[in-house]
Simulated scan of single mutants.
Amino acid sequence: MRTFSLLKGLRVYTSRGQCIGSVNDICLSESGKIEGIIVHRKAFFKKNLFFSLNDVRSFGPDGIIVEKEEASPDNHPLEGHYLFNADSLFGKMLMSEAGEELGLLHDVFFLEKMGTIVAYETTDGFFSEITEGKRLVESKHPPVLGKDAILISVYDQ
């Protein structure tokens, strides 16, 4: 299990040891499953590359190895959600299906190879973080990624 905050900024290498760039974001499908990583390319014209989870050979503590030698620029899916870029999920309200506010989304815990999100790290803001810390909310079911909030099932139904 891994958090996105541990992935962000990690260098991404090809199977031949060439550094492509660093992890910039993750892409989630409408069903809330992680489809792949967005890599900020090391080049004069900085374009983002998309690698699906199937393209990733290994997630290491200091870098990620991908199977493909090259991904075409901006080949990431047009549909989908991103944790930080575009219409990001970071900072959106996380709510239970019972209507309880659980806090603002700060990070996600996921299974690397499966792309399944198993827990969410939330915060109630800067001052709350200092006094109470961040909260971990587990969910066994996929989230509903809405425009204004993310709905999760906290309890087994």
Rank of each mutant, 00 (worst) to 15 (best):
A71I: 00
S29W: 05
L10G: 10
I26C: 13
L151H: 05
F59Q: 05
S15F: 06
E70Q: 12
V23Q: 01
E30W: 06
I64S: 05
F50H: 07
K113Y: 08
H81K: 14
M1Q: 15
N24T: 07
N24F: 11
S139D: 00
V108G: 02
K47D: 01
S5R: 14
E97I: 00
I34C: 04
V56D: 08
L145D: 02
L28A: 06
C19A: 15
S88M: 04
P77K: 09
Y13R: 14
R41Y: 02
G146H: 11
G32I: 06
E121K: 15
T123R: 13
P77E: 11
T131D: 00
F110I: 07
I65K: 13
G32C: 13
E97Y: 03
L10R: 10
T3Q: 13
K134M: 13
L28F: 13
V23C: 02
D124Q: 12
H141L: 04
I34N: 06
L111C: 11
G17P: 08
Y82V: 04
R57Q: 06
K140H: 06
V56F: 07
P77V: 00
H81V: 00
L7C: 13
E30C: 03
A86D: 15
H106K: 15
F127G: 01
D74Q: 11
D124R: 14
A98M: 00
F84S: 08
V56I: 15
N75I: 01
S31H: 06
K42R: 12
S22T: 01
F84W: 08
I38D: 06
Y13A: 12
V144I: 12
T131A: 09
R41C: 09
G133Q: 06
D156G: 00
K92S: 12
N75D: 14
G60R: 08
G146S: 02
V154I: 04
G91C: 04
E69V: 00
D62L: 11
L49N: 10
K33H: 06
K140C: 05
N54L: 03
R16W: 05
F126A: 07
E101L: 01
L28W: 00
S22V: 01
D124Y: 10
L89S: 07
H76P: 01
V39L: 03
K92Y: 02
E101K: 14
G146L: 14
S72A: 11
L145P: 03
E132F: 08
L28Q: 03
V12T: 12
I20F: 13
N75C: 13
L7H: 10
E30G: 11
S22F: 06
V56T: 11
Y13C: 01
V39M: 12
E121Y: 02
E112L: 09
H141W: 02
K68L: 15
R11I: 07
I37C: 05
K33D: 00
L94V: 15
